[in-house]
């Protein structure tokens, strides 16, 4: 469905000297700086896959999305969406893709959203019966019924996002780009939106590319993730695999009765490492955090050794979160 090979993109950014003198100088001569936004990336996405495309801010996510949607021309490399080269055939590509940008509205601000949908029907040339069917289904799943007669201006963020999502799927696109579709939403709306995306994928085999900073989105929607950093792909594979690969590192936090010179019990010394958690940093000096590898020692063993050596008031075991894994990868690399 999506084929990306050795894709690169450089920008030229005008460089300015600081201050007023620099501003005046820039009127006459400009120096340019080349910024490598995306560097030699390759991946294939099959029809019906739901891929989380994640990376820190400025990692090159939106540059990639823009090249996939034909807004940017690559500096080099191959990009194909459903067999179409987006930047050569922007309009044809446009009719088979849909997009939601969490930060921007694509609907009319001042007239009821029903009118916006009606216009989209004509723009994407959706047959009337199909349009009615789909709108009915969206109204049902996203609970749009009470919203159809209201302009976006008067909607809450959650209502707005549901309306946007329906707009993006209205022409039954083969590929949908979702850019932070759940940003700033409450849990109930997030759930509804995730359920809708899964439902569309199940019914229509819509290919979904999701960029988000909310790892819960990724866990609930995607079966594959691509991590990009500094314009390069760091990881591309199944969500489960990355969890298994990096998720064996676990941490247990202990609250000790009293803490006068803690040392790691002898039996654990070689297999466990004391780490500084945010709770100790916050000044709770009775807290001790131990990190260990699941393959070498079990959590139960660590706990029982600790109970024998110290009086323990409370303990918590960190769950393996994709968030933590991604943070580790950003910070330390693979």
């Amino acid at each position: 469905m999506i084929d990306v090979q050795n894709l690169s993109k450089q920008y030229q950014i005008a460089k300015r000297d600081p201050g007023l003198a620099g501003a005046v100088k820039s009127l006459f001569s400009r120096k340019y700086e080349t910024k490598q936004a995306v560097q030699d990336i390759s991946f294939q996405i099959q029809k019906g896959e739901m891929v989380g495309y994640i990376g820190a801010n400025g990692a090159g996510k939106s540059t990639t999305i823009k090249m996939l949607s034909g807004i940017l021309t690559p500096s080099s490399g191959v990009v194909r969406v459903n067999g179409i080269v987006p930047y050569e055939n922007r309009r044809r590509n446009a009719s088979q893709i849909g997009a939601v940008f969490g930060q921007r509205t694509q609907l009319f601000w001042d007239i009821p959203i029903r009118e916006s949908y009606h216009l989209l029907k004509h723009i994407y040339q959706v047959p009337e019966t199909e349009f009615q069917q789909r709108l009915e289904m969206f109204t049902d799943v996203l609970d749009l019924g009470p919203l159809l007669g209201i302009p976006v201006r008067q909607m809450s963020l959650g209502q707005k996002m549901r309306a946007e999502l329906a707009a993006a799927f209205l022409h039954n696109p083969a590929v949908v780009f979702l850019d932070e579709p759940t940003i700033g939403l409450d849990v109930a709306v997030k759930d509804r939106i995730r359920a809708f995306i899964r439902e569309m994928n199940r019914q229509q085999e819509t290919t979904v590319i999701l960029t988000t900073h909310d790892m819960q989105d990724i866990e609930e929607i995607c079966n594959r993730i691509i991590i990009i950093d500094g314009g390069k792909i760091l990881y591309d594979g199944a969500l489960q695999a990355i969890k298994e690969r990096f998720g064996d590192k676990r941490t247990i936090h202990f609250d000790l009765e009293k803490n006068d010179g803690f040392t790691i019990p002898y039996a654990l010394a070689t297999r466990v490492e004391q780490v500084v958690s945010h709770r100790e940093a916050a000044g709770k000096s009775n807290s001790i955090s131990l990190s260990f590898n699941n393959a070498e020692i079990t959590a139960a063993e660590v706990i029982s050794e600790m109970m024998q050596a110290y009086t323990i008031r409370d303990l918590t075991i960190d769950e393996v979160h994709i968030e933590q894994i991604v943070k580790d990868i950003y910070e330390r690399g693979l």
Partner: peptide, 13 residues
């Protein structure tokens, strides 16, 4: 406002 980018994702002239 940068909206022109979204406009370019529409299948019209």
């Amino acid at each position: 406002g940068g909206l022109v980018a979204i406009e370019l994702m529409r299948p019209y002239d």
